[in-house]
């Protein structure tokens, strides 16, 4: 329980990695980087519970596992329920004297499908019961693992295999679920949004999430070159642009009430136009090719600006 979070590069190098090489995530996927940064924030014995998703499937293809810490997977919809069970089990084992450690950190990880849609019921239940779990969602904007189907986290205008773009439709027409705010509405102690590009911010927030008593929630953006049809080397750049364009603003929410904008977002004077974020991605190509969707593109920009202004108001930032 005494291990410090590693923020400086020298400390990071000394910290044990929790994910090994040889996992079969796609080239350029940001999720292993997210797990690596998560490992930098750990403070002692940790258990990871995972919902089905790219990360679960590709890191544990039998007979291999890339995880170096205890890891459990059950089903798509119940990562948070399993995490609750793990917390209770350790509590009982400790009471009966069968387990020496005072405390075990339990982390639940889900993709955006397993969090925004399928696992939402069990997530909400866990938050309501107040189990001491950190839930992290790595949000790549669709069910990338099963073949890029739209999810609640898909951005408007994004083309997926269940929201095709063409003459009739500009891709997904609806807005993205504001998951961090929905979770914050449960009045849990800590909610934060992070981006792997801003690594210091990421590690510090994750450490805060581990340290609070009760449930905490982390929303990380995770660029997916395969599904976003972007270049594999551009993943971190897109993670940065997502913050700069206001698509994924970085903020924290304490006890569901107190909003606080984080440094990287606070320093933004004016939002970068979303075109900069969309152009490197093939999934938004139709918005530029077909002149009839120009209006829709402006509509997306307006939505994002509205959300940004509202967030600024909540955080008390001018």
């Amino acid at each position: 329980m005494t291990e410090e979070a590693a923020v400086r590069i020298k400390d990071m190098l000394e910290k044990d990695e929790i994910l090994s090489s040889g996992h079969r995530m796609c080239a350029g996927c940001a999720a292993p980087t997210i797990v690596k940064l998560m490992g930098m924030a750990l403070r002692g014995p940790t258990v990871v519970c995972e919902a089905t998703g790219c990360l679960e499937v590709a890191t544990t293809i039998y007979p291999y596992t890339a995880w170096k810490i205890p890891w459990i997977h059950v089903a798509f919809e119940n990562a948070s329920a399993v995490a609750s069970g793990v917390v209770e089990a350790y509590k009982v084992m400790h009471q009966k004297g069968r387990f020496e450690h005072e405390h075990v950190d339990v982390i639940a990880i889900g993709g955006d499908g397993g969090t925004f849609d399928i696992g939402f019921g069990s997530l909400s239940g866990m938050l309501e019961r107040g189990h001491d779990v950190v839930y992290m969602v790595y949000d790549n904007g669709a069910y990338q693992n099963t073949g890029i189907q739209r999810s609640g986290a898909t951005l408007p205008g994004q083309e997926t295999t269940t929201s095709w773009a063409g003459k009739v439709s500009p891709g997904k027409e609806q807005r993205k679920k504001p998951i961090a705010e929905i979770v914050a509405a449960h009045k849990i102690p800590y909610v934060a949004t992070v981006s792997p590009y801003h690594r210091r911010d990421f590690i510090q927030k994750f450490r805060k999430a581990l340290e609070v008593e009760g449930p905490a929630f982390i929303h990380a953006i995770s660029p997916c070159p395969r599904g976003w049809r972007s270049e594999t080397g551009k993943s971190m750049e897109l993670a940065k642009l997502a913050v700069e364009t206001g698509i994924h603003p970085l903020y924290e929410v304490f006890d569901g009430e107190e909003y606080k904008m984080s440094g990287p977002s606070k320093r933004i004077k004016e939002l970068t136009p979303i075109e900069d974020y969309m152009k490197p991605q093939g999934q938004f190509r139709h918005l530029f090719k077909d002149p009839q969707w120009e209006g829709f593109r402006e509509q997306i920009q307006t939505w994002i600006k509205e959300d940004w202004e509202l967030l600024k108001k909540k955080c008390g930032v001018e």
Partner: peptide
């Protein structure tokens, strides 16, 4: 991974953490 049937751990458990390093993705 080229173990015979009687060399595989009970219930097919993976005993070594991080044994994905045996799989080369280069």
């Amino acid at each position: 991974m080229s173990e015979k049937f009687d060399e595989i751990p009970m219930a097919g458990n993976i005993i070594k953490p991080g044994n994905a390093t045996e799989y080369k993705t280069g």
